[in-house]
Simulated scan of single mutants.
Amino acid sequence: MDTLKVVDRLTVTFLVDNCIEWMTKLPPGFTLELRQHLSDHQPPIDPVTGVPFIDLENYCCGAHGFSALIETGVAGEEPHLILFDTGPDSQSIIRNVKAMQVPVHRIERIILSHWHADHSGGMLSFLRHRSTMSQADATSRCVADVHPDRPIARGIAPLDKVIGRLPADPTFEEIEAAGGIVETHREGHAVANGTVWVSGEIPRVTSFEAGLPGAVRWMNNEGEAKWVKEEDIMDERYATIDVAGKGLVLFSACSHAGIVNVVKDAVANFSRPVYMVIGGLHLAGTDLADRIPPTVAFLSNQLKPCPAYVLPMHCSGFAAKVALEAALGEGCVPAGVGIKVDVHGDREGEHMIFPPSIE
């Protein structure tokens, strides 16, 4: 297995999420979108009153999907910028990278968590936008790190009746034409000079995490085309960063594999405590309500030490957020699009880091 470096700093900016949160008090290191605009982004000044405009026309928008900008830093090395997923459509990712004044030309890699359009839908528009912004450096192309098993189509079939298909994921040819370089990976691997780990297939070891109910895939085998049940979504991958003196920060965009399976795999691979869990936990809806109590019990009681922070986003659902807040208190953070998180490493605190245990 590739070596995962311990980093001195991690900065995460949420570029696409279902929720927008402007007013809740957040823990240290978390910065709300509005504050960033008014203090860091040189907002337009009202000529009448002399104070900055709250320029709502150019702030982030919410969308059903996920995208996070990940910046890793190791002392004495250049930082690396990675985009984890790209949201559901061609518009939200572009609006929001402009709103957050993201240096898109510095983003070296897109990690696609899995082939679902609410995560891949903004990839082509982002790559085209990046190509436009990087014209001065024709050699600067962005890697698209994807699982090789791209589906023809995926749909949803509650009660075994297909009621709709998701928009098509970008093809490898479209990614290349938009300015990307396709890399396909089935196995876990380190990227960003070893500061980010992208998982391979996630082992399914829990009894209650059983994939995405009603998920189907269009298959065409030997001339027979039909919808086939596909609840496991085996192309799903997570990403992790190891922060000095803190431990692992996990990005699980949808947790079709189950967030408990994700955490168990990361702990098994790295023997490091889990500092932060970020992303969609896929616990929304009545069909998945019975998974909430064992998930919360695992994160809050069975995993020792429990994560300092859990950020339930995207497809986590209101009931899961309420349950996690009841169990973790301020450790459950209501993150949303536009929020920035700074995690500073502590090399001197490394001697306090011990392997986690699972009861």
Rank of each mutant, 00 (worst) to 15 (best):
S316I: 06
R217C: 09
V102I: 15
I278S: 10
L69S: 09
I107E: 04
S255N: 09
R141Y: 05
S207Q: 13
L303F: 01
Y275H: 14
A244P: 03
V97A: 01
V143A: 09
K340V: 02
V51D: 11
N58S: 11
E21D: 12
D242E: 11
I111G: 09
N221S: 14
A168D: 13
V182D: 11
F318N: 08
D2R: 01
T49N: 10
L112E: 11
D55T: 04
G65V: 08
P151R: 10
M352P: 00
S300L: 02
C61I: 08
V182R: 10
L324N: 03
M352R: 15
R109D: 03
L250T: 10
L32F: 01
H116L: 01
N96T: 05
E325T: 15
E78I: 02
S316V: 07
T240V: 15
G317L: 02
M133Y: 03
F208S: 10
S271P: 00
E359P: 12
V249D: 00
A297R: 15
L38S: 06
D287I: 08
V102Y: 05
I358T: 06
D40G: 01
V333Y: 02
T132G: 11
E21L: 06
S131P: 00
K25F: 00
S125T: 09
R9W: 00
Q91E: 09
A144H: 03
G331A: 06
S131Y: 06
D235C: 15
G200N: 10
I94Q: 03
I110K: 03
V51P: 00
E174I: 01
I82T: 15
I181S: 14
D242I: 00
R204P: 02
R217G: 00
L124I: 15
V337P: 05
E330H: 14
V263Q: 09
H119E: 13
D8T: 03
R291K: 12
T171G: 07
L26G: 07
E236R: 12
